[in-house]
Design a protein around this nucleic acid. Structure first.
Length: 473
DNA sequence: CAAAAGGATTGGT
DNA sequence: ACCAATCCTTTTG
């Protein structure tokens, strides 16, 4: 399997600047599209058309595994509170984020970007330290149990295939031409949604709608009408695109364990969001100290403030934040959101309403596994994830969760929970246990003492735990 | 006081 | 049966 994933870059069709009114659509859509347009990342992430004037510096030269880890983490399925069972990480699945996507000219198949798109399932299980002392457990089978499962990962080939089909139909149809020329900015969202086929599967649309459109086009016109999109169709597509956008944001909330409303973010949340966004857009890292502030402060920053702190990423960060801000007062997010939300707010120390979580629904893609086995059902793994496995997942993404949990002594499996509330919240989300808290989580960890999965550290320190050998790596 | 430690019980698979 | 979620009491730093 290729180590690649169809990734859409985050490039906005910023090529042309058409400005225009959005077709008949809900006002809120307007709003959203406006922000999405503004969110276009600065440069095309695709490799195809290498950006001439800006050299894309390897974002994380110092850490090639960063993204790998990031995706590895994202790869875990999120339980859906709603009905769909297992779920697969939309984030990883849809590199296509609502905010981005290249859609310029001829459809391009994204092909990896070394280091950046490593697919979790194929990545080495422990990218962090190939040299860890625990490596002594070397045999392959060793991973059978004490290792994070990868079954939930995505079937890249399938995605590529679908992407291809979709793109071809898009190419043959109207979308590209018309949008490119007339409404490049306002349809970023639509494009991303089209590019990302997951929503189609979700709604059983596959390429059908597009193809119908093309057929119709051929029949009905002599070719003079390159663009015949039944209004209903485009609206439908747009609404689905919005759905997708929502899911991506929700997913980000889930992955990071942060609230949807930036105003509620703690300093750690802000940091996590900034790091995540930078990575998502493949932007150079920025010293976290520059964003050492809580959500309220972040929201108060102006675009210039962002640019000062992050010359190369300020614009994108600002634009992204605008999207999040827009989403919070608003309607488009709640419109289709049927509740199933929060009856019981988990007590949060900082007084933060502990994340208003929005349900993380998530899609349903089964994911292929490199190992082939059980390709069909990936979801099982999500429900049965063990706490210790979950903790290791978090530990594997230091850039994202380093402020919540981190290794103190990786080789000996010693780690420290820096933010017990956050870790508990993440665990609760994963297990769909809204009432989870650190007290309960820690009780479970203690059970591991008897089971030999974890052990008490030499000198017990608060919030410091230690994995027993076979489990530490 | 928050966290560590465990006992006991319940609930889901 | 096994895990984890809950609840709760006691101890500890």
């Amino acid at each position: 399997m290729p180590q690649t994933v169809p990734r859409s870059g985050c490039s906005p069709p910023s090529a042309s600047q058409g400005e225009r009114a959005v077709p008949a659509s809900p006002a809120d859509l307007h709003h959203l599209l406006r922000f999405l347009g503004a969110a276009s990342p600065p440069e095309p992430m695709l490799h195809s058309p290498p950006n001439p004037h800006s050299k894309p510096p390897p974002p994380y030269p110092e850490d090639n595994n960063l993204l790998e880890r990031l995706y590895d983490f994202e790869g875990y399925p999120t339980p859906s509170p709603s009905s769909d069972e297992g779920s697969i990480p939309t984030v990883a699945l849809q590199p296509a984020s609502p905010y981005s996507h290249q859609f310029n000219s001829p459809p391009v198949y994204i092909k990896e970007e070394p280091n950046r798109l490593a697919v979790p399932g194929f990545a080495s299980p422990y990218p962090l330290s190939p040299s860890g002392s625990c490596a002594s457990y070397g045999s392959h089978n060793q991973y059978s149990s004490p290792v994070p499962q990868h079954e939930e990962y995505i079937d890249i080939e399938e995605l590529l295939k679908e992407n291809q089909i979709l793109q071809e139909s898009v190419q043959q149809n109207y979308i590209t031409p018309k949008l490119e020329v007339e409404e490049p900015r306002d349809h970023i969202l639509l494009r991303s949604a089209l590019e990302d086929t997951t929503f189609q599967k979700r709604f059983n649309l596959k390429p059908i709608p597009l193809e119908l459109g093309s057929v119709k086009m051929e029949e009905s016109s002599g070719g003079d009408k390159p663009f015949i999109v039944p209004g209903t169709h485009i609206d439908h597509v747009l609404s689905m695109a919005i759905e997708q956008s929502k899911r991506d944001m929700d997913n980000t909330c889930t992955v990071l364990g942060i609230a949807a409303d930036p105003m509620l973010w703690s300093t750690a949340d802000v940091k996590a969001w900034v790091m995540f966004t930078l990575q998502h857009f493949n932007l150079p890292m920025v010293p976290t100290e520059y964003f050492a502030m809580d959500g309220a402060a972040l929201v108060a920053l102006t675009e210039e403030d962002f640019n000062q702190r992050a010359p190369e990423a300020g614009t994108t960060l600002y634009a992204q934040l605008e999207i999040w801000k827009a989403a919070r007062h608003d309607a488009w997010r709640t419109s289709q959101w049927t509740e199933h939300q929060q009856p019981s707010p988990t007590p949060t120390p900082a007084g933060l309403p502990s994340a208003d979580d929005m349900s993380d629904d998530e899609d349903s893609e089964p994911a292929g596994t490199s190992a082939a086995s059980g390709v069909g059902k990936a979801k099982t793994g999500s429900t049965h994830i063990h706490l210790w496995q979950f903790l290791k997942e978090l530990l594997a993404s230091p850039h994202i969760h380093g402020s919540a949990i981190r290794w103190l002594d990786r080789s000996n499996g010693v780690f420290k929970i820096e933010d017990s509330v956050r870790v508990a919240r993440l665990w609760g989300k994963r297990k769909n246990r809204p009432a989870m808290n650190y007290d309960k989580l820690s009780r479970s960890i203690r059970q591991y003492y008897k089971k030999g999965i974890m052990k008490k550290t030499e000198r017990s320190q608060r919030l410091v735990y230690q994995f027993c050998h076979p489990y530490c790596l």
